[in-house]
Design a protein around this nucleic acid. Sequence first.
DNA 1: GTCAGTCTAATGGTCGGATGTTTATTTGCT
DNA 2: AGCAAATAAACATCCGACCATTAGACTGAC
Lengths: 223, 223
Amino acid sequence: MAVTDEAITKIKDMLISGELSAGDRLPPEKELSEKLGLSRSSLREAVKALEIIKVLDVRRGDGTYVTSLEPKLLTEAMTFIVDLHQDESILEIFEVRRILEPAAAAIAAGRITTEEIAGLRATMENIDDSTSVEQLVDHDLVFHQLITSAANNAYLSSVLDGLSSGTVRARIWRGLTQEKAVDRTLSEHGAIIEALERGDAELAKALLTVHISGVEHWLRQAL
Amino acid sequence: MAVTDEAITKIKDMLISGELSAGDRLPPEKELSEKLGLSRSSLREAVKALEIIKVLDVRRGDGTYVTSLEPKLLTEAMTFIVDLHQDESILEIFEVRRILEPAAAAIAAGRITTEEIAGLRATMENIDDSTSVEQLVDHDLVFHQLITSAANNAYLSSVLDGLSSGTVRARIWRGLTQEKAVDRTLSEHGAIIEALERGDAELAKALLTVHISGVEHWLRQAL
DNA sequence: GTCAGTCTAATGGTCGGATGTTTATTTGCT
DNA sequence: AGCAAATAAACATCCGACCATTAGACTGAC
């Protein structure tokens, strides 16, 4: 194994063993490279790799720190990869979303707070079929994130957020706008909010299945 | 933005735009660094980062290639991250698995082939409650992977595989062995195979929900 | 004493080049 | 044609120098 990969493994082990914890600061590059027995150049490659997947947070002029290590960091790593193959396999991604999001909504229905409901309602304000695509994408992003986060499972949220990257969303809403299907989509969002507010898990689940399947169907014929 | 991060973005853009495709070979480091306007050292950091998340495949003495970019590469990226926080949040991860795996089994029930059934049966051979923990973990890993792959959705498989890393599995089976719960777990596996063979999606789904919930319950009290 | 501004040391960011190691290819011999 | 050695290409690693940024210490005015 290359020294750089060894360094990655060693740092990872230090995290797993607890020698390094969330928020801790790593020794300076020079010092750490000597400790791990490799050059600063090679160590930097290792640190860069860990920074990309959000395990380390490098602050120039300050130092290198261990991130919060929250499940949230799964999202960015996934988004990076999902972005790379959006064309062929969007449908497979939607199949996964169609499994997870209704389940998330069902869980959310049982524990969603009035504040969260209010947050969902807020995303619907000032939105109609004459709103710009960018705003629609923003609304859509926040809407779905609020629901999944109401399910109170950070991994669930991370995976779902990672699977639905912004680039894909933008393409879809552009298409929906052209086909004048914005109204219907927005009214589906409204119905979902009502079901969640009533705590109707079954209905919320069904509505989300229908909602995602609808977009999926549109996508299928658009490809 | 640092030059290294710019380089990562540029390479990513080359992939999205199609200038680089799966299997393509990148220019040599020296040449590419000149083209992108940065030093070889900095470029190497970028390449290393992309290698870690399985976007690039670096072959010493040969060259650097774009990987297949299959969804499968999501797994390793996820495993890396999931391994880092197994303790606190295993239960959240299990909640996600409990949503996805039964759904995967239901899909699989409708399209699983006799060869795949035979493959599942094969994992049960030579396995009983006197088998070593390592072998049990191997069996378990292959068993669940076969089911998810029978669902024929590469993203679904990748996400599930990523969520259930080997380290967690090992801990669980060690526990199950101590509690003499191996028998029950294995018989559950057998029942799942039969349901899949009969194409009974509802039963397969229910069995997997029960199966995962059982492990989840054991985990909850073990923590 | 307190605050603002300045200075400095620590730290990461970038670079260029030298050298080692591995692999694929070419060359040359039989 | 086939095998083996030589060669070249490419990545791997290291080193040392210098730049850029930041946090924190310091200083001086009030």
